[in-house]
């Protein structure tokens, strides 16, 4: 009995892990070697699914789209989050209100936010284009121009998620002792120098966390294009996850979809490993 107690205590987690993590992962590994449309029995196809990934131009277009999204989304998000966190870290009136306000979009349903922004971006009646027209400028196809649409989505996603990273940065900033800045004041450092040579290196672990979190979050881009553009125009906002979803639940290519999933996970891993080399984690 004594030997069993610890296992009993961790069993709720273990059960959850087995059913919702281990089994699906294991099952999808099996799937990658099969052809399966849920209804008919699985058919062994060996490495055929993997071969198909390399020839699938739509998939690589989706990966490329996702990277285009990340290139705008991650730096924008980090810059804005860090800037806001710096502001909120000062003793300003109503700091608690602003903290809550910036965090609000994070907890609002992604669908709601997306629909709201769809209105904003609307070609004919959107607030943005009305503003531009009001200023005597032409309309922009925020979601209709294949060269613009993905970046519009990136800006929206940034607005939605930035609050979370503001909070993370704020925690990092608050762990920097005030005396570091006082010492720097005496040494003659400017505000920028204090930020560059003291704040930034010290909050580096937070920065790394934020980079990784927003990379992984960005790679899983789905709701926004799914609702706003359905991947269009001209597949320009088709994200990798969306494509994987389409393969699984529109075409019922379960085996191929699982294979895409694994390849995509590999790509994410690769990117994070590269990031890790460039962002020091330790102070």
């Amino acid at each position: 009995m004594k030997k069993l107690t610890p296992y009993l205590l961790v069993s709720p987690y273990l059960l959850h892990f087995l059913v919702f993590v281990a089994f699906p992962v294991g099952f999808s590994v099996v799937l990658t070697f099969h052809d399966w449309n849920i209804i008919s029995p699985m058919k062994w196809v060996g490495l055929a699914n993997y071969g198909r990934v390399f020839r699938d131009r739509e998939f690589w277009q989706a990966v490329w789209n996702t990277l285009r999204f990340l290139v705008v989304h991650i730096p924008l998000q980090i810059a804005i989050a860090l800037f806001l966190a710096e502001l909120l870290n000062r003793t300003i009136r109503g700091a608690a209100f602003f903290r809550a306000a910036f965090f609000l979009p994070v907890i609002v349903s992604g669908v709601v936010v997306t629909i709201l922004w769809q209105q904003l971006y609307s070609f004919n009646s959107g607030l943005l284009n009305r503003g531009l027209v009001g200023l005597g400028l032409g309309r922009v196809g925020w979601l209709d121009d294949p060269d613009v649409a993905m970046y519009s989505i990136a800006v929206m996603a940034t607005w939605k998620n930035v609050g979370l990273y503001v909070i993370l940065f704020l925690v990092g900033l608050q762990s920097v002792p005030e005396q570091y800045y006082e010492a720097a004041d005496l040494e003659g450092a400017t505000t920028w120098q204090k930020f560059r040579y003291i704040t930034l290196p010290i909050i580096n672990p937070t920065l790394f966390t934020v980079v990784v979190l927003s990379t992984i979050g960005g790679f899983s881009l789905f709701i926004e294009p799914y609702i706003m553009t359905e991947g269009g125009p001209l597949n320009s906002t088709l994200s990798a996850v969306m494509y994987i979803y389409k393969q699984a639940f529109q075409y019922y290519h379960m085996g191929y979809s699982a294979t895409l999933g694994f390849c995509f996970a590999l790509i994410i891993l690769l990117v994070v490993v590269v990031q890790r080399r460039y962002v020091e984690r330790e102070i």
Partner: peptide, 19 residues
């Protein structure tokens, strides 16, 4: 401003930059 007073200060907990 502090930097133009030509003074240096040693803090109680040293305030050395950890990085």
């Amino acid at each position: 401003p502090p930097k133009d007073r030509d003074i240096a200060m040693v803090f109680q907990n040293y305030a050395l930059y950890p990085h």
